[in-house]
Amino acid sequence: MLNDFILKTVNLNKSFRAEKNFFSSKTSGIKAVDNVSIKLKNGDVMGIAGESGSGKTTLAKIVSGLLDYDSGEVFINDRELKNYSRYELSKKVQMIFQDPFSSLNPKLSIGTAITEAIKTQNQNLSEKAIEILNMVGMAPDTMQKYPHQFSGGQRQRIAIARALASKPEIIIADEPVSSLDISVQAQIMNLFLDLKKTLGLSYIIISHDLNLLSAVSDNIAIMQNGKIIEYGQSEKIMDSPENPYTQRLISSILTINV
C-alpha cells in the first residue's frame, strides 16, 4: 500500500563541520546522521534510544524540517519533505522538546502562544485554543497566564497543546519527560497515549530511558555514532538484543532489586 508509511527516510546523511584545526587548514566533519533509513507506520510509535551525541536529536530535527540534510531522502506521506512548504509541513509534523521552558516564549501569554499556532488554520481562535488546552488537561484560565507561572509538567502539557494546534499527524518528541519527576512523567506519557487514540497520531519518541520507550513503542531503534545499529520490535530489542552496544544499554538499566 502506498500510504502504509507516514514517514520514511532513505539513506539520510548529515554532517556538521567541526572548527578548523589550528595547525592545518583541513576541516574535519562529524557525521551526526550516517546513512539512516527509518520507516514509521501510520499510527505507530517509534522509540529512538542511544547515548548523548549519537545523532538522535539531529535525526529528529531533520524529519521535522528544522534542519537541512546533506544527502538521502525524507518522505512524509510519500511526498518528499523538500517539496513541502513550511505551512504544509507544520500541519504534518510537530516537534516537542525536552525543556518546555526554553521552547515557550516567556513574554507571550499561553493564549497568544497557542492562537499564534492556530492562526495559520483560520479558525475561531480563542475558543479553539481553549478546546486544545482542554485536550491536554489544562483549564481555560491558562490562556491569560505566562510560562513561568507553571510547573515543568504543566509547561510540557502546554508545549504539547501548541504542537497540536496546527493539527499535525506526526509528533516528534525529543526527551519529552526526562526533566520531569517520575509521577509527572507518567502523566505526560499517558497524555501521549490518549492523544494517539483520540487523534490517531503517530509518534517518534526519543529517550534514554529504554524501559519507558519499550512501554510505549511498537518499534525501537538504537543509535550510536550517527548510525542505527539495531532496529526491531520493542519486545525483541528488550528481550534478545543482538548488538553488543544494545546489550550494554539494556544491562545498564537500573532496576529495583530487593
Binding site: 509538567g153 512523567q185 502523566q187 506519557m189 524501559n211 519499550s214 512501554a215
Partner: peptide, 19 residues
C-alpha cells in the same frame, strides 16, 4: 513506585492524581 515505567508494553502508566 508504581509510576516507574516497566518494560512491558502497556495501555496506561500509573500516575498520582493532582500535583
Amino acid at each position: 513506585l508504581s509510576a516507574i515505567p516497566k518494560k512491558d508494553n502497556l495501555v496506561k502508566f500509573n500516575t498520582i492524581p493532582g500535583s
